[in-house]
Simulated scan of single mutants.
Amino acid sequence: MAATRSLNWSIAMKEIATARTQRPAGLLAARGLIAATSAKRRPLVVGGEYDRGAIMAAAVAAARVHQARTGCAWGEAMSVTLKATWQIAKAARAAAAH
């Protein structure tokens, strides 16, 4: 006789949603650092368009600080800081549009 396995879809979907909504470690700190330093020196949005060079420069500078604080790999630090930088840039663009 074959063993059957039951699956509770409600629990499975909640676990998937929980896994997706977790913030990477240091995201809020990186966003605060970028907002306080890099984004003020060189605007991330110019004339309603994203300045990709400024976004990368801000992310790299914040990644160095993030990596020194947490001791994580460079790729992970860049991932966190790019997410934070794009969040700030999107918010700045939306604020400029209104």
Rank of each mutant, 00 (worst) to 15 (best):
M1F: 15
M1C: 14
A2Q: 12
R5L: 15
S6M: 13
S6A: 15
S6C: 11
W9V: 14
S10T: 14
S10P: 10
M13I: 15
M13D: 14
K14D: 12
K14N: 11
K14M: 09
E15Y: 09
E15T: 08
E15C: 07
I16N: 04
A17L: 13
A17C: 11
A17T: 14
T18P: 06
T18F: 11
T21V: 09
T21H: 07
Q22S: 12
Q22E: 12
R23L: 14
R23N: 08
R23W: 07
A25E: 11
A25T: 10
L27C: 05
L28C: 07
L28R: 13
A29Y: 08
A29D: 11
R31D: 00
R31W: 04
R31V: 02
R31T: 03
G32D: 06
L33I: 07
A35Q: 15
A36N: 12
A36Y: 03
T37R: 08
S38L: 11
K40W: 04
K40T: 08
R41V: 02
R42T: 10
P43V: 01
V45T: 02
V45N: 02
V45G: 01
V45M: 03
G47C: 06
G47M: 06
Y50P: 00
D51P: 00
R52Y: 09
G53M: 01
G53L: 02
G53K: 02
A54F: 03
M56W: 08
A59N: 04
A59S: 15
A61T: 08
A61C: 00
A61L: 05
A61E: 12
A61W: 05
A62S: 04
A62N: 02
A62E: 01
A63R: 06
R64G: 10
H66I: 06
H66Y: 10
A68T: 09
A68N: 05
R69P: 00
R69T: 13
R69G: 05
R69Y: 09
T70I: 02
T70R: 01
T70D: 02
T70L: 07
T70S: 05
G71N: 04
A73R: 08
A73V: 11
A73H: 05
A73K: 08
G75H: 04
E76Y: 09
A77L: 07
M78L: 15
S79V: 08
V80T: 11
V80K: 02
V80N: 03
T81N: 10
A84R: 06
T85D: 07
T85V: 07
T85Y: 07
T85S: 14
W86D: 00
I88W: 10
A89K: 07
A89D: 03
A89I: 03
A91I: 00
A92T: 01
A92S: 12
A92Q: 13
A92H: 10
R93Q: 15
A95G: 06
A96G: 15
H98S: 06
